[in-house]
Protein backbone atom coordinates (compact mmCIF):
# COMPACT_ATOMS: atom_id res chain seq x y z
CA UNK A 1 0.00 0.00 0.00
CA UNK A 2 1.47 3.35 -1.02
CA UNK A 3 0.02 5.67 1.62
CA UNK A 4 2.00 8.63 0.27
CA UNK A 5 0.38 8.13 -3.16
CA UNK A 6 -3.09 8.41 -1.65
CA UNK A 7 -1.95 11.35 0.47
CA UNK A 8 -0.82 13.14 -2.68
CA UNK A 9 -3.90 12.33 -4.75
CA UNK A 10 -6.15 15.23 -5.74
CA UNK A 11 -9.17 13.54 -4.18
CA UNK A 12 -7.56 13.18 -0.78
CA UNK A 13 -6.14 16.69 -0.84
CA UNK A 14 -9.59 18.02 -1.66
CA UNK A 15 -11.15 16.05 1.22
CA UNK A 16 -8.60 17.32 3.72
CA UNK A 17 -8.97 20.87 2.44
CA UNK A 18 -12.76 21.08 2.81
CA UNK A 19 -12.56 19.37 6.19
CA UNK A 20 -9.94 21.82 7.47
CA UNK A 21 -12.00 24.74 6.19
CA UNK A 22 -15.15 23.55 7.94
CA UNK A 23 -13.39 22.60 11.18
CA UNK A 24 -11.61 25.94 11.45
CA UNK A 25 -14.82 27.94 11.07
CA UNK A 26 -16.84 25.73 13.41
CA UNK A 27 -14.20 25.67 16.14
CA UNK A 28 -13.48 29.41 15.97
CA UNK A 29 -17.18 30.28 16.02
CA UNK A 30 -18.05 28.02 18.95
CA UNK A 31 -14.96 29.09 20.92
CA UNK A 32 -15.77 32.77 20.52
CA UNK A 33 -19.44 32.20 21.34
CA UNK A 34 -18.66 30.12 24.43
CA UNK A 35 -15.97 32.33 25.96
CA UNK A 36 -18.10 35.40 25.30
CA UNK A 37 -20.38 34.13 28.09
CA UNK A 38 -18.01 34.30 31.10
CA UNK A 39 -16.36 37.43 29.72
CA UNK A 40 -19.61 39.31 29.10
CA UNK A 41 -21.22 38.44 32.45
CA UNK A 42 -17.91 39.31 34.12
CA UNK A 43 -17.14 42.60 32.41
CA UNK A 44 -20.51 43.77 31.02
CA UNK A 45 -22.69 42.86 33.97
CA UNK A 46 -24.93 45.98 33.92
CA UNK A 47 -25.89 45.18 30.33
CA UNK A 48 -26.30 41.46 30.88
CA UNK A 49 -28.62 41.74 33.88
CA UNK A 50 -31.23 43.75 32.00
CA UNK A 51 -34.56 41.93 32.17
CA UNK A 52 -36.10 40.94 28.86
CA UNK A 53 -38.93 38.50 29.59
CA UNK A 54 -40.46 38.85 33.04
CA UNK A 55 -37.62 38.48 35.50
CA UNK A 56 -35.43 36.58 33.03
CA UNK A 57 -32.41 38.62 31.97
CA UNK A 58 -30.10 38.65 28.94
CA UNK A 59 -27.46 36.67 30.85
CA UNK A 60 -29.88 33.77 31.34
CA UNK A 61 -30.97 33.63 27.71
CA UNK A 62 -27.36 33.91 26.53
CA UNK A 63 -26.28 31.00 28.76
CA UNK A 64 -29.27 28.91 27.64
CA UNK A 65 -28.54 29.71 23.99
CA UNK A 66 -25.13 28.02 24.38
CA UNK A 67 -26.84 24.64 24.52
CA UNK A 68 -28.67 25.32 21.26
CA UNK A 69 -25.49 26.72 19.69
CA UNK A 70 -23.73 23.42 20.47
CA UNK A 71 -26.59 21.39 19.03
CA UNK A 72 -26.83 23.50 15.89
CA UNK A 73 -23.07 23.27 15.21
CA UNK A 74 -23.24 19.51 15.79
CA UNK A 75 -26.20 19.25 13.41
CA UNK A 76 -24.43 21.23 10.70
CA UNK A 77 -21.30 19.14 11.12
CA UNK A 78 -23.27 15.92 10.83
CA UNK A 79 -24.98 17.16 7.67
CA UNK A 80 -21.76 18.36 6.04
CA UNK A 81 -19.90 15.19 7.03
CA UNK A 82 -22.64 12.93 5.69
CA UNK A 83 -23.07 14.84 2.43
CA UNK A 84 -19.58 16.12 1.62
CA UNK A 85 -16.89 14.22 3.54
CA UNK A 86 -18.23 10.67 3.59
CA UNK A 87 -18.74 10.19 -0.19
CA UNK A 88 -15.11 11.18 -0.90
CA UNK A 89 -13.73 9.08 1.95
CA UNK A 90 -15.85 6.11 0.86
CA UNK A 91 -14.55 6.41 -2.70
CA UNK A 92 -10.91 6.53 -1.58
CA UNK A 93 -11.54 3.52 0.65
CA UNK A 94 -13.17 1.52 -2.16
CA UNK A 95 -10.45 2.32 -4.68
CA UNK A 96 -7.64 1.33 -2.36
CA UNK A 97 -9.16 -1.54 -0.41
CA UNK A 98 -7.41 -4.12 -2.59
CA UNK A 99 -3.87 -3.00 -1.83
CA UNK A 100 -4.26 -3.10 1.89
CA UNK A 101 -1.63 -5.25 3.55
CA UNK A 102 -2.78 -6.67 6.81
Amino acid sequence: MRWDKIAQSEEFKHLVKIKAWFMTIAIIFSTVYYFALPLSVGYLKPFMIQKVTGSINIAYWFALSQFFMAWIIAGIYAWVANHSFDPIADKIRRENAGGLER
Binding site: Y60, A63, F67, A70, I73, A74
Partner: peptide, 21 residues
Protein backbone atom coordinates in the same frame (compact mmCIF):
# COMPACT_ATOMS: atom_id res chain seq x y z
CA UNK B 1 -28.33 30.62 41.24
CA UNK B 2 -27.06 31.96 37.92
CA UNK B 3 -23.35 31.19 38.39
CA UNK B 4 -24.13 27.51 38.85
CA UNK B 5 -26.13 27.57 35.62
CA UNK B 6 -23.28 29.23 33.73
CA UNK B 7 -20.92 26.54 35.01
CA UNK B 8 -23.11 23.77 33.57
CA UNK B 9 -22.85 25.14 30.00
CA UNK B 10 -19.23 24.07 29.40
CA UNK B 11 -20.07 20.41 29.94
CA UNK B 12 -21.99 20.27 26.66
CA UNK B 13 -20.00 22.78 24.60
CA UNK B 14 -16.97 20.52 25.20
CA UNK B 15 -18.52 17.93 22.89
CA UNK B 16 -18.09 20.18 19.85
CA UNK B 17 -14.34 19.55 20.13
CA UNK B 18 -14.94 15.84 20.69
CA UNK B 19 -17.24 15.61 17.67
CA UNK B 20 -15.34 17.71 15.17
CA UNK B 21 -11.69 17.14 16.01
Amino acid sequence: GYDGFMYSVGWLVAYIVVLIL
